[in-house]
Design a protein around this nucleic acid. Structure first.
Lengths: 339, 339
DNA sequence: ATGAAAGCGCTAACAG
DNA sequence: CTGTTAGCGCTTTCAT
């Protein structure tokens, strides 16, 4: 076993409680003694055992972060930001990947909740019912989902969607499709509502296509439906869907943005690397990660009797190369000569 | 505070040790009693406190996983595989991102090491000296790095590199560049050694260019050097570098694979999504994640007096669209007519 | 300012 | 098979 508080106490000729205070309440101990203890501890390589501390204080100083899929490029920036923010508050973040599986998600939460002071749920696939039951065990903060009574961080994708539809309308598109995401995705529902409203506002016809898997496969699979629908512009649930769609369209001889304009959501790494560079809606994932940590820490330190906080973060459209003007009368998608 | 073992004991009319055994050594307790205890525990919503258990057993049943950058698409598949494998062994994996910062890496390890039974170091940026000091505190397994005396999982990138150079040679390339990775990267050194050997074997001239940042910026920054060097084929440290290079080459009017053939390493998500699809060396990241967990668990349960294990995993070249035959005499890169 | 003692939730001998 | 007892490393009254 490693060096404990007792070893330090013995080696520096004080009682364990003094050593303890040196680390957890330094102002309560004589400067001289403190320095001696610190020096001895340093020399022995002593590090407080946080698990043991947690046992008495009831605070682990750990946070859990549950995501559906680390490999989805939407999440890493959020994770990084959350870890960085937590570190500044002397907290540590444990990340768990649920593989998009609600059962696994619940198991992980139950497993985690005894080792953390609070849990960050990002775009959870769990039912609200389960979440509400689980919250008795540990404070939650939810990102991109509405659960009544829980502190929440929302990315206001509606703003970006409105801008996207306006952008397409301005380029002359009259028929536009929305490729929705997984059933039960709050973001997807928000996109739907905002797209419907914006379509009416800008006088374009909106077709809904979905649900789709939230990855390239989903976009690829939707390509034939899009190709046959006569739309000239498509707004996708996320960047991966958009990239998959572009790929599928190409296989059918359709060019982007020549024949079809495609817009993604997230502004993820692949969106910036791909060719054509994706026009997309930026999601403030880093800000959301930081904010979620702050909200969670507030909930942890205040008890949950507060009015649950709600943070809404802005989104924006960033225009790149996957959208362009309609160069045909009806805007109907047809194989282009260069395709 | 949550429901403890004592509450369960009281409610089911047995002693705490019986409840304890029900969970940690079920075979030692009468089936009838066990079922009763289990039922009561279930009813009360009891979950064993793993931190408290860790205090007596000395086993947290947690593993730490340190990566340089979660946002680098190389890591997520490894992380997912490690978490899945650990779960099967009733272990939990805590992921920490060091932001490519050795100082932060060390801090995180020291912070983590009291809450985990072992640590997985993936492509660490830490000096061997520091690693060797830290290993006294907690068992390590290292991925893609050689540290004497430590259990190791290596991805044998040399195989893939040889295949890549052979592939380029077969396409008629005579002058080839290697864009190396960060200084101190084991993988980068392996690539260099293997590329040098393969270049001699296949009779091509090899130019070394680096070190480069392990991301698209690194590739982008190297583009002008590559464009001016007269090479017709480039092997890059990883897919992101390759994609950045392709982008930079394009900005200079050079087509891939028309003017220059580019090969990446990792076979990451962006490599498959991008256009042209990247010819790349597959890295067995998932297998490495699983293997590393098994090695680490073995080290944890055996004490470190064993001969440290060494696993070498195969890599392969997957040919896609970013490589092609040389269509000019000297193979010198020059603006193409279609560029 | 420091020491003494109790206890956090759990496991691990040791008895019985 | 089950109860008793001690103690993991640390914090936290309460004394002194």
């Amino acid at each position: 076993m490693a060096v404990t508080i007792r070893d330090v106490a013995r080696a520096s000729g004080v009682h364990v409680s003094t050593v303890s205070r040196t680390f957890s309440a330094p102002h309560l101990v004589n400067a001289e003694t403190r320095n001696r203890v610190l020096a001895v501890a340093e020399g022995l390589g002593y590090r407080p055992n946080r698990a043991a501390r947690a046992l008495t204080t009831g605070r682990t100083h750990n946070l859990g972060l549950i995501v559906a899929d680390i490999a989805n490029p939407f999440f890493p920036p959020l994770i990084k930001a959350a870890q960085a923010q937590a570190r500044e508050r002397d907290y540590h973040v444990f990340v768990a990947d649920t593989d998009e599986d609600p059962v696994l998600e619940q198991e992980l939460i139950e497993m985690l909740c005894k080792q953390v002071d609070g849990v960050l749920l990002c775009s959870p696939r769990l039912s609200n019912r389960v979440i509400e039951r689980l919250r008795a065990q540990v404070p939650f903060v939810v990102v991109n989902r509405r659960v009544k009574g829980l502190a929440t961080v929302l990315m206001d994708v509606g703003q970006g969607v409105r801008a996207a539809v306006g952008h397409l309308a301005g380029l002359g598109h009259r028929r536009v499709a929305l490729l929705s995401g997984p059933a039960g995705s709050w973001t997807s529902e928000e996109m739907h509502a905002a797209a419907t409203a914006a379509a009416a506002e800008f006088g374009v016809e909106l077709m809904l296509q979905g649900p789709n898997e939230p990855n390239e496969q989903g976009g690829l699979a939707a390509a034939s439906a899009v190709a046959g629908s006569g739309v000239s512009g498509v707004l996708c649930y996320n960047d991966l869907v958009a990239l998959g769609l572009i790929e599928g369209l190409r296989e059918r001889g359709l060019d982007v943005p020549g024949d079809v304009s495609v817009i993604g959501v997230d502004d993820s790494l692949p969106a910036r690397l791909n060719r054509p560079k994706l026009t997309t809606i930026t999601m403030p994932t880093a800000a959301a990660g930081r904010m979620a940590v702050d909200l969670l820490l507030a909930a942890v330190n205040a008890g949950d009797s507060e009015t649950p906080a709600l943070a809404r973060l802005e989104t924006n459209l960033v225009v790149r190369e996957s959208t362009g003007a309609v160069d045909r009368v009806a805007g109907a998608a047809q194989p282009s000569l260069r395709g």
